[in-house]
Amino acid sequence: PTPPYLKWAESLHSLLDDQDGISLFRMFLQQEDCADLLDFWFACSGFRKLEPCDANEEKRLKLAKAIYRKYVLAGGGIVARQIKPATKSFIKDCIVRQQVDPAMFDQAQTEIQALMEDNTYPLFLKSDIYLEYT
């Protein structure tokens, strides 16, 4: 069978679908001081999985605010710097109007994913961390 670390080189999704791959990628991103990209990406996926229903409305709003405050709000963080202003406004509007849609972070996640695909993921595949692992 194909060893997992070779699968990681196939696509970002193959990498993010494997616990060991995620750990190694996180180590690399921490070195580059941008592990928030990965945390934000998973936070968006986790948020989308929370079904809207009366029982967890409060939790979803609290979580949306937490994601917004930690990653999106201008505080100089890498995620905030990479998300487009229009996308940030859209997320802010959803929170202000308390309309937390499961898809409200989708566009922001897509933008961060594109950055990882174009930048950090190819760098990771050429990094000492990955090469030593293989």
Binding site: A43, S45, G46, A66
Partner: peptide, 20 residues
Amino acid sequence: IDSEDDLLQECISSAMPKKK
């Protein structure tokens, strides 16, 4: 703030792939 961090952490973990 702690509980907000816990909530975020729980959310991030829920999206991670399970051990194969």
